[in-house]
């Protein structure tokens, strides 16, 4: 039974005098209870827009969403009314944002911001809310929570801020957590700690999580299922081990060969993908990745490729078919245990 079932999600931005932008185009994925699903792609591939669409946080004007996103009890997150959505947000579905500094109100102490959620969804007030907030901060690993509650965001370190935001997100033990690049603004050691924390919290509460990132190193150690996005469409979807062992879409393959591995030979060069996301073909004409792909053939530009291949699906007419056979996920992983041991 899936907790969130996203079907054919599309988001189109209209603006006067310009062509419509299809930021997300027919994205389909599902999240089961307690599962961590990754949405991976480079900037502009539509991953953040997907998360905002699911939370109903896209601006009301100039945006058209299509498809369905059925949450647990049958509520379509894309079509439901504001009131229901407000009750769901924070209690059933919560989100963690990329930049912890700008996501916290600079003139309100941390404690007030945490208790606000508790008051809203759990009806806690005064001393009880304060106590609970303290426990929450303690739970996300903020030392001396009583003192921290009175402090302002600028007094906390980056990692601490992200921990506070996470505390707010998990305050009501939501069933789905959407993490939009939660570690991008942090330095590497803190990144590992935050990922470890998220993993732990999700595991303890049985929360499902959608992890949005551009960093394959992040998903390697964390996600059960991974969707790779390119130009608004899913180009490859597979379980973690399958994806890392056998990256089939040339884009995924390119991404993996462009990041360093723990077992790579000294002095070996990385292979970046040439070009940028802007060099794309509209999906209707062919594969959007074709202009940057080193395996491009005539067939690539003859209409849009379909998602094929069953459980480990990919959207490519000329896939990479080499297989390493071993579990490679660990070699890319950014986990603390892997990095320090």
């Amino acid at each position: 039974m899936s907790l969130l079932d996203v079907q054919d999600l599309s988001v189109v931005f209209h603006s006067k005098g310009r062509e419509d932008v299809r930021a997300v185009d027919g994205v389909t994925f599902e999240v089961r209870s307690g599962e961590i699903v990754g949405l991976v792609g480079e900037s502009g591939c539509g991953k953040s827009v997907t998360s905002l669409a699911l939370m109903g946080l896209l601006p009301p004007r100039g945006v058209k969403t299509g498809g369905k996103a059925i949450f647990d009890n049958g509520v379509d997150l894309l079509r439901t009314d504001q009131r229901t959505m407000r009750d769901l947000r924070g209690r059933e579905i919560a989100m963690i944002f990329q930049d912890p500094l700008s996501s916290l109100n600079p003139v309100v102490p941390i404690g007030d911001q945490v208790t606000e959620v508790l008051t809203r969804h759990r009806g806690m007030k005064g001393e009880a809310a304060k106590k609970e907030a303290e426990l929450l901060l303690d739970r996300v690993g903020i030392p001396d929570p009583r003192r921290r509650l009175k402090e302002y965001p600028h007094q906390l370190s980056g990692g601490m801020r992200q921990r506070a935001l996470i505390a707010m997100a998990v305050a009501c033990r939501p069933r789905l957590l959407i993490a939009d690049e939660p570690t991008t603004a942090l330095d590497v050691t803190i990144q590992a700690q935050i990922l470890e924390l998220l993993k732990e919290l999700v595991h303890q509460d049985g929360t499902a999580m959608v992890m949005i990132t551009h960093d394959l190193g992040v998903v390697a150690g964390l996600c059960d299922w991974i969707n790779v996005l390119y130009a608004g469409r899913v180009v490859e979807t597979a379980g973690r081990h399958a994806l890392f062992a056998k990256p089939t879409h040339p884009y995924t393959h390119g991404l993996l060969s462009s990041i360093p591995r723990l077992d790579s030979v000294r002095g070996e060069r990385l292979n970046p993908i040439p070009g940028s996301v802007r060099d794309l073909l509209p999906w209707l004409e062919g594969c959007a990745f074709a202009p940057r792909c080193d395996r491009v053939t005539e067939a690539c530009v003859e209409g849009p490729p379909e998602l094929t291949g069953g459980a480990h699906a990919f959207r490519c007419v000329n896939p990479v078919l080499e297989e390493s056979g071993q579990d490679e996920a660990a070699l890319y992983s950014r986990e603390v245990s892997g990095a320090i041991e």
Binding site: R89, A94, M168
Partner: peptide, 17 residues
């Protein structure tokens, strides 16, 4: 339009609040 407003909205906080 600030991000903390979006963040507060994402936690279900009422508009008036």
């Amino acid at each position: 339009n600030a991000e903390y407003v979006v963040a507060a909205t994402s936690l279900g906080v009422h508009k008036r609040k």
